[in-house]
Each structure stands twice: as structure tokens, then as C-alpha cells.
Amino acid sequence: MKVEPGVAVQVVGLSVGWSQEPLLVDLSFEVRRGSIFAILGGSGSGKSTLFRHLIGLEAPLTGRVEIAGVGDPLQARGRPRFGVLFQSSGLLGSWTLGANLELPLRRWTALEPEEREAVVCARLGQVGLCGYQNHLPAELSGGMRKRGGIARALVLDPELVFLDEPGAGLDPVTAAQLDDLILTLNRNLGLTVVLVTHELASIERLVEDCILLDREEKGILARGDPRQLRVESPDPRVRAFFQPETLSTPAVP
């Protein structure tokens, strides 16, 4: 199977979960090239699990994932064609932040050490971590580790990145700067972004297309542009997800 032109990630009939107990059944969707796509859903709805299948870390129960230029991510070899940020950042703990970013550059490009240093510093600067290249991950705060993970996901300038909760644990200002960075790269480089997020503000600003997963449905509750889903969806659960403030608050006695 080849992905259609204009599609970055294609998912067909995907079921994921654990042997007897499927978590999500028969998912099909596609991520358009150059778009910012969000996987949404309540906590425990299977976002991170779906994410791990998209990047080829786990074999699905049935169905398949295809990535443009890669094919089946389970079989991907050689220079990574997409960047990944894990929910817990995944920085190598015994390497400095700078070394974490330099590692893929050293392996997959023919740059001189000086040039690698320039790339690393620029990448860290973009996420507001300039000057931290000699720190170990253990010496950074949780939000800083997250941003370091994003810088590492972007360091090879992939055309596609997968980000698991990039904004979690960041203050509103830093989170907004991160959104700016994602938008800039998306507009200027045509970067395709697949992200898992809960931040309604970033969803509002960034996301053009999304799927909303649901635990009970074992699948997709809604899909489309979140700005439209928010007001136009016939399903009250979907509207409630995008407008939690409309849920009735218990009356104060």
C-alpha cells in the first residue's frame, strides 16, 4: 500500500490494545501533508498508545499505518524521516542536553563539529534553552526537559514530527512561544505536525484537523476542524470536550 499524494500519515483499519482487550478498534484516518493534526481525547482514552503505533514502536492487532516516504513505520530503517517527542521527553539521562541533540547530527549528517554546535545552539535557542547545552537532563526542570525533547525531535529538520503533549507542564507564556515555533516551522517549512494535547488554547491556535478518541466507543468520537466541532457537533460529549466550562457546576449551597 502506498499513501496517496498529499497525505503524510495514513491509518487503515487499525486496532490497538492488549491481546484480549482492544483499546481502539478499526481506526481509519489520514493526516494531510503540511497540516497540524491533533489526537485528542480524555485521559486514558489511548492517545499515547495510538501514538506509539503511529511511530512504529508497537505492532497493531490488526490494520496498518503508512507514512509517506517511509512506508510501514515498523520497518523503518536508516536516517529517521520523522521526529518524535515522548510524553516523558525521553532524553538520555547520562548525556548533556547538547550531546543529546548532537547525537543524531553526528550519525546522520556530514557536518563539521563547529557546524553541529551551531545547529544545536540554534535549536535550543528556538525552545528557549540557549545556554543549557552542558546541563544533564536531571539538572533541568520538567518543562525544560520537555522543550529539550522537542528540540531533539526537530534537530534533523524532518518533514513530519510526532509530539506527545508538547505543552504539558509549561507556563502559558512558554507554551505560547512553543506554539509560535510550531506555527513558524509549519508555515515556512511545510512541517507536518501530529500532536497529542489537552491544551485548549493551543488547539484553538494551531490545530486544523483532529480526531477525538473515546474510551467507551473504542474509537473515534469525532473528527474535523476543532473550531467547527466545538460549536457544530451534534454530540454533546464532543461539545463538552471543547467547552468544559459549559458543563454544569455543582451549585454552592
Binding site: 545552539c121 545556554g131 515556512n188
Partner: peptide, 22 residues
């Protein structure tokens, strides 16, 4: 074109990493 300038602007004003070497 604007996309190229946009990326160049991203790096404006970053300090020189050589000053940050330990």
C-alpha cells in the same frame, strides 16, 4: 521568499554558542 526569511529570522539575536562552551 518569505518562508526563507521567516526561518532566518528565527535565529536573529541568538547568542554565539562559542561563548557558552564550558
Amino acid at each position: 521568499p518569505p518562508p526563507v526569511r521567516g526561518i532566518l529570522d528565527l535565529h536573529e539575536g541568538l547568542p554565539d554558542p562559542r561563548a557558552l562552551r564550558p
